[in-house]
Computed example of a mutant assay.
Amino acid sequence: MGKWTLWLLIALGLLVNHIAGPLLGQNVWSARTTTIGTVPPRLAKQERPMANICKFDTSGHKVSIVTVEPGVQLEVLDWGGIGETLVLLAGLGDNVHVFDEFAYQFNDRFHVIGITRRGFGRSSQPVYGYDIETRARDDIAVLDKMNIREAIFVGHSIAGTELNEIGAVYPDRVKKLVYLDALDLGAGGWAALPQPPPSPPDTAADLESVRRFAAANARFNGYRAPLAAICNSIRTGPSGRVVAAITPPEISRKIIAGLQEAQYDRIQAPALGIFNAITPDYRLPYYWYLDRATQEKFDRDIKPLAEWIAGAIQRFRTGVQNSRVIKLHDTNHYVFIVDEALVVREMRKFLLEK
């Protein structure tokens, strides 16, 4: 996620710059603009084993490529399970491999699948179709192709916009909705907020290999993404060095440009929101790597952001008639990774209720 996308995530309530707009945050986009240069032969020799690291995905899911319209195909993962279908949708910049470990918390009682939205991961990158109506229609088209009539939808971060649209426009396809720190960026004046500064740029050492890159992201962002999520977000050179992001930044810009206020009053399905309610004292791990002047800007900008998040949570609570809210305090935007046990407990309780 380019640095501007990091800001989106920050606004989402996580304040994390991972993954191209969730995805490997600013680090991935820095990789696109960093001068790579020539890797010394000694270093290249050391890195060769790393070049194959992204060829192995141990999650055990089945991978399908589903055509949702002529020329547009989406990557769909199936973690198996028997019961009602549970659909996982990732945040901006992420691909659905970000749930590679989390998915196994539910496939004892549900059939768990995940969809990588157009523009990201192995899904197609058409020049069009990043508006909310099309993205929601893509998700429904996947269900149609799989002969799934009704499903539970679980969305992280900006996937909440897809949940809002699906819940409002396709109510007969929705069993329940779960929002994982997925606030309504189209309302409450978010676009006008000053945004806290992003993390420091990647160093040459951070880009030497996928594992170094993953470590830098974990160090600055406070959570470790599944390796397959990172591998499906970046391109590497022959030595294994990170050289580019798979998704160009204009795709995320198109998604953000099309944000709309949620039609909460049209959502009929039971909904659970698990949100990161930050305070003005909230600090991301990378804060401590910033110079003093940049830290002071962060300190100033975090206050109005905390107020906006509080208001967004309240809008969800009062706007979605059949909703339940769990507020976590000063944790991480990737609540399903950092606070996995708590999130799983609350989700299973909600989803298994009749």
Rank of each mutant, 00 (worst) to 15 (best):
V338W: 06
V66G: 03
I337K: 02
P171L: 05
A11P: 00
L284R: 10
F102A: 07
D299I: 03
V127R: 11
A51N: 01
R219M: 07
G237T: 05
E133Q: 14
E208K: 14
V127D: 12
L15I: 07
A214G: 12
R266Y: 02
D281M: 08
Q321V: 07
V98T: 06
M146Y: 04
M1W: 03
V39M: 05
A187R: 14
D94E: 13
M146A: 08
G83V: 11
A204D: 13
A11T: 11
Q73C: 00
T279Q: 07
G93W: 01
H156S: 12
G160Y: 06
W7F: 05
L185R: 01
R173Y: 10
T35F: 09
A205S: 15
M50E: 15
V335D: 06
T35V: 13
G114H: 03
F275C: 00
L342M: 12
L284Q: 13
I337E: 07
G2S: 14
R253S: 12
I274L: 14
T116Q: 02
F220A: 07
L259D: 09
F153G: 01
T5L: 07
E346D: 11
A293F: 04
T318W: 03
N27Q: 10
V112C: 11
R283H: 14
D202A: 15
F298D: 06
R219Y: 04
V344L: 03
L74A: 08
I10N: 09
A216F: 05
L177W: 02
D94H: 04
L89E: 10
P238F: 11
I337R: 02
R137G: 11
T134A: 12
Y286N: 06
A262V: 09
F102L: 05
V112T: 13
V127S: 12
Q263K: 15
D108F: 02
I302A: 09
F275K: 01
D281Q: 13
L193M: 07
V210W: 00
V142D: 00
L12G: 15
A90Y: 06
L6Y: 15
Q321L: 08
P304I: 00
I152F: 06
D57I: 08
D184G: 02
W79V: 00
V96L: 11
Q263F: 06
I337M: 12
I152Q: 06
L86Q: 04
Y287C: 11
W29M: 06
I158L: 14
R235L: 13
D184Q: 01
A215N: 15
E296V: 11
E150D: 09
K327D: 14
A136I: 04
P200R: 03
P280N: 11
G91W: 00
E133R: 09
I132R: 10
D301Y: 14
D172F: 00
A182Y: 00
L177C: 07
D339Y: 02
R283M: 12
P40A: 13
Q195F: 10
P22I: 09
R118L: 04
L352F: 01
A214V: 13
S59I: 02
T279I: 03
F220I: 07
V169Q: 12
I255S: 01
V344E: 05
L88F: 02
L185A: 05
W79K: 05
T34W: 07
E340A: 15
F350L: 11
R211I: 09
A44E: 13
W308R: 03
G37V: 07
A11I: 06
P280T: 11
I140T: 10
R253Y: 07
A257N: 14
W7Q: 15
A225K: 00
V28S: 03
I140S: 10
N17Q: 12
S209I: 07
W79M: 04
